[in-house]
């Protein structure tokens, strides 16, 4: 069978113009990513299917708000972010996000792909053991940057925060993750994970 090259933005345009069936292509491309994002972010969510389904329903309902001259990926991730936040709010008693003082002032932005590559392996190992212990905003940014491999700019558009804040929050998230991972060093669970990685 021949391959058809069509961008997400082109598909979105077709859907906007009434070709409803093409929406299945977008679902096909993003379902794995959004499931992965949802599972890591929501952690304790039993009905991940329902939540991801809700994301795609909202995406379809609001597809005409998408500007086809922009990237589709941050747009749908933004919908997913809002949906997952609402899902957490339903089961959580306290506030999800406390006020982030890092959004008050500007921070210098320095996104180094070589540093990211070096850290990626280490961070991905820590994610499975330490992620649940992180605060929601730290957990999410680690997932978006290291697991979903989005850029600072894309993450800023998804979370609606300044680009500089993405860098600062990511740095703090890494520190928190390392600390959480370190606390598991002597635990049986850690030994099991290390064994699984070696295998």
């Amino acid at each position: 069978m021949g391959e058809i090259e069509i961008t997400d933005e082109q598909i979105a345009l077709l859907v906007q113009n009434g070709d409803k069936d093409k929406f299945s292509l977008l679902m096909d491309r993003y379902k794995a990513k959004l499931f992965r994002y949802g599972r890591k972010f929501l952690a304790n969510e039993d009905n991940i299917d329902d939540v991801v389904q809700e994301v795609f329903i909202k995406a379809y309902q609001n597809i005409r708000s998408f500007d086809v001259n922009q990237k589709f990926s941050p747009w749908i991730y933004r919908i997913a972010h809002n949906t997952y936040i609402n899902s957490i709010k339903k089961i959580s008693r306290g506030p999800i996000y406390t006020f982030d003082f890092d959004t008050i002032v500007s921070h210098p932005v320095y996104e180094d792909p070589s540093i990211k590559e070096a850290e990626e392996v280490e961070i991905k190992k820590m994610v499975d053991t330490g992620l649940e212990k992180l605060r929601s905003n730290y957990r999410e940014i680690v997932i978006l940057y290291y697991i979903e491999e989005l850029s600072y700019k894309e993450i800023a558009d998804i979370l609606h925060i300044p680009i500089g804040t993405v860098g600062i929050r990511l740095r703090r998230a890494k520190e928190a993750l390392k600390k959480a991972f370190g606390e598991h060093k002597n635990s049986e669970h850690f030994a099991k994970v290390v064994q699984e990685i070696k295998e």
Binding site: M1, E3, I4, T7, E9, L25, K71, F72
Partner: peptide
């Protein structure tokens, strides 16, 4: 713009 490939 992203370029993705779909296989039928």
């Amino acid at each position: 713009m992203e370029h993705n490939t779909t296989k039928q």
